[in-house]
């Protein structure tokens, strides 16, 4: 069979890394770092997700095709988020006409 058997030690290392990162993200959340808080929280979450994907889901040891598949989902998620957010962030730059901008209430 073409299965790659990963040593058990690796799984425990990843497990403890994930726990430590969880502790760190909780700890950091209590400091007021302004916008940096969000960046750190998302950065840590992304790191944790990467560890799970690469090791627990064996992508690190998988074919290029699996890499492409795994990346595609996140790439298109980013497209969805980016365009949608671009609308929300820039909607008020030009008031389209009276009553459109703040008239929702």
């Amino acid at each position: 069979m073409s299965q790659h058997i990963v040593p058990m030690r690796v799984y425990f290392v990843i497990f403890f890394s994930l726990l430590i990162l969880t502790a760190v993200t909780v700890w950091v959340a209590f400091f007021d770092l302004g916008a940096v808080n969000d960046a750190v929280a998302l950065g840590i979450a992304t790191t944790k997700a990467m560890l799970v994907i690469l090791y627990f889901m064996h992508v690190r040891y998988s074919s290029k095709l699996t890499w492409i598949f795994a990346a595609t989902g996140f790439l298109f998620l980013i497209i969805l988020l980016a365009f949608t957010l671009s609308d929300v962030l820039t909607r008020d730059w030009i008031p389209v006409s009276a009553g459109w901008g703040g008239g929702a209430q």
Partner: peptide, 24 residues
Amino acid sequence: GLYWHFVDIVWIFLFPLLYLIGRN
């Protein structure tokens, strides 16, 4: 296993987005 880890990943993002924002 793949499915289960994926569900784990979703939670890894949900936790900071729902519980941790605005703690400071």
